[in-house]
């Protein structure tokens, strides 16, 4: 049991160390998020009321696209350098190892997106309370994006134009997180309680936490067969 924890932590720190040494990958994702959100006021005009009412959808769709941008790298590099095969040969349950990799992915991409979102909310005219809801919703929602995205990344492993395929495969699966997450912020905008949306988003996170690593592990085994 102790060595299982050691394997999990070692894999997590390995991926985090690599991400830290190649910061540009994470920064590109964050930069993409910031730029896309900032383009909307330029595109639709500076009407504060309009921007405010669009903010939840704009922020969530941008977060979704930014996550997609980073998914291809989740397994493809490991697949190229042969460490993915070693992952499959490990005596530990593959879903748990997958979870370590997805967690590292979320810490590097999803978490920064969530943390920077209040600033972008400010840009779109959200009030402090609404920014809090936005942050909460993204903190609950971006792990779902990473977990579900892992399935797509595993299924498109080693395929040409994998990035586009991931988008086609995964975007429909992102709909529940998008509806609930943007819905939570919408509710806050209209001064109703976002509690129901956030609870459902939390339930969605638990559900994907249980199912996605298994699906990803199965997909990896099939793709490396």
């Amino acid at each position: 049991m102790k060595t299982l924890a050691a394997a999990f932590l070692s894999l997590l720190t390995r991926d985090l160390t690599l991400a830290l040494r190649r910061r540009q990958d994470a920064l590109v994702v964050l930069g993409f998020f910031v730029v896309v959100v900032s383009l909307f006021p330029l595109g639709v005009g500076p009407d504060p009321q309009l921007l405010r009412s669009m903010a939840p959808g704009v922020l969530w769709v941008s977060a979704l696209l930014a996550t997609l941008l980073s998914l291809e790298r989740l397994f493809s590099e490991d697949g190229r350098d042969g460490t993915l095969e070693q992952l499959l040969l490990s005596p530990w349950p593959l879903p748990l190892l997958v979870l370590a990799k997805v967690l590292a992915h979320w810490l590097v991409t999803g978490l920064p997106l969530a943390l920077v979102s209040p600033l972008l909310g400010l840009q779109l005219g959200l009030e402090p309370g609404e920014m809090g809801v936005l942050l909460m919703a993204l903190l609950l929602g971006t792990p779902v994006l990473s977990l579900v995205g892992g399935i797509g990344a595993a299924l498109t492993l080693g395929l040409r134009s994998g990035g586009v395929l991931i988008a086609l495969l995964i975007l429909p699966l992102y709909v529940p997180a998008l509806v609930l997450g943007a819905g939570a912020v919408d509710a806050a905008l209209y001064a109703t309680s976002p509690g129901a949306h956030l609870s459902l988003l939390g339930a969605l996170l638990l559900l994907t936490l249980l199912l996605a690593p298994w699906a990803t592990a199965a997909a990896l085994r099939i793709m490396l067969d």
Partner: peptide
Amino acid sequence: GHVDPLKDGLSPRENLRAHCALQG
């Protein structure tokens, strides 16, 4: 396999420690 299972961005020491931990 025919490629060495090593991470380019890590040193040999870090690679080996990660490799061994993964294999228990």
